[in-house]
Design a protein around this nucleic acid. Structure first.
Lengths: 208, 208
DNA sequence: GTATTTTTGTACCAATTCGCAATAAATTCA
DNA sequence: TGAATTTATTGCGAATTGGTACAAAAATAC
């Protein structure tokens, strides 16, 4: 027996697809320069429908970014936490990351948060909080992963977890910035590999 | 004998001061969200006057950013190149940098380029080129400084100049991003000190 | 004093922007 | 079948945006 839908005219949009299309627009232009008309075209939804479905422009961004984060976090966490070897985990994580940053168009679009809302973060408190939260999440993940490696004996007991995590976060911020500036994927990959190797060297990682 | 001015009504604005005020507005809001009205108020110049003096909104940004870069490059180069000891040079350079990133308002505004135009870089080719050029200039400076340190015997002859420079550039990108997200100066300083120390350790720097 | 030049200031323009009101369309329920 | 509900659509409004035309103001030159 097919499930009966609720009353009312059926939706012509798919929430996930619409949010995905919206985020691509935001990534193409940056937050402010993406208009409701851009979003309307991309989602094939009229502006009032966008408002009814998702709320204001800012709400649309926040929901789209959250969906993207939710979709990609598993991919990234698998790379970071499922591999017992720290060097391999980091290489895999950053390879995944630069692939994400290079997705979407014929030229890289960078990070859906760092590359899209950085300009607006100071003047708009909600956007600023979103940027700060994104940075904090990344920091927390790297701290967690470095702590796990130290506890597994792959790093010295005296390892300064925060300092090493800061280096890895810096690499992530840099890759996003470079992707946004047009750096090609192979170059991003080279930078990631070299920097991971140097960071591990500095941290005193045990050879595998 | 006082110098006679040219014909015409005397200017009521100072070019340097106007461009400085304009850049502060751009740093406060990001590029697109800064309107001609914002710039007009900040510079105390009417919009037609802004056009006559500096050109379009984009021209204003580019000129203001160039003036800022010109003013701060000496400060930064002095820190980086005048100090023979690489660790001291880098510490001094990044201390200068985070001070710059924290200047301007009661909360840090980050980098006048990386923190302001990143969102617009993909859709506007001129802005994109400006972002890419800023990244390239930073890369070139770090490469030059690391090569000088290797040639002075402070780093091993086999040092991978590019890889080390990439790490330092990553730190700079990260500090800009963190400043923009509201990170306080003491925290930026801590991250910079720790990251410089780890980078030098990875590079095999000689103890002073 | 008039002409020329440069700058300032007012007024205006066309287009865009975000957001809303009202209505029509498409479904289910009673 | 009509009512209720949800969604889509058209039209609109107020405000903003980047930019321009033109006249007035303020100086020098003759």
């Amino acid at each position: 027996m097919t499930e009966k839908s609720a009353r009312g005219r059926p939706r012509q949009y798919d929430v996930r697809a619409a949010l995905g299309a919206a985020l691509l627009e935001f990534r193409r232009r940056g937050y402010t320069a993406t208009s409701l008309d851009h979003l309307s075209e991309a989602t094939k939804m009229a502006r009032p429908s966008l408002y009814a479905a998702f709320g204001s422009k800012r709400d649309i961004y926040l929901r789209a970014a959250a969906q993207f984060a939710g979709d990609s976090v598993e991919r990234r966490d698998r790379a970071l936490f499922d591999e017992p070897s720290l060097p391999k985990a980091l290489d895999s994580y950053f390879a995944t990351l630069v692939a994400i940053y290079s997705e979407g168009d014929e030229r890289p679009l960078g990070c859906p948060v760092l590359s899209v809302i950085t300009g607006e973060a100071t003047a708009d408190p909600v956007i600023g909080a979103e940027l700060a939260a994104a940075l904090s999440r990344t920091d927390a993940r790297f701290c967690q992963r470095i702590a796990a490696a130290r506890d597994a004996g792959q790093l010295p007991p005296s390892t300064d977890i925060d300092a090493v995590a800061d280096m890895l976060a810096a690499l992530q911020h840099s890759l996003a910035q470079r992707a946004r500036a047009g750096t090609a994927l192979p170059e991003l990959e080279r930078i990631a590999r070299n920097s991971v190797a140097l960071t591990l060297k500095a941290a005193g990682a045990r050879e595998p």
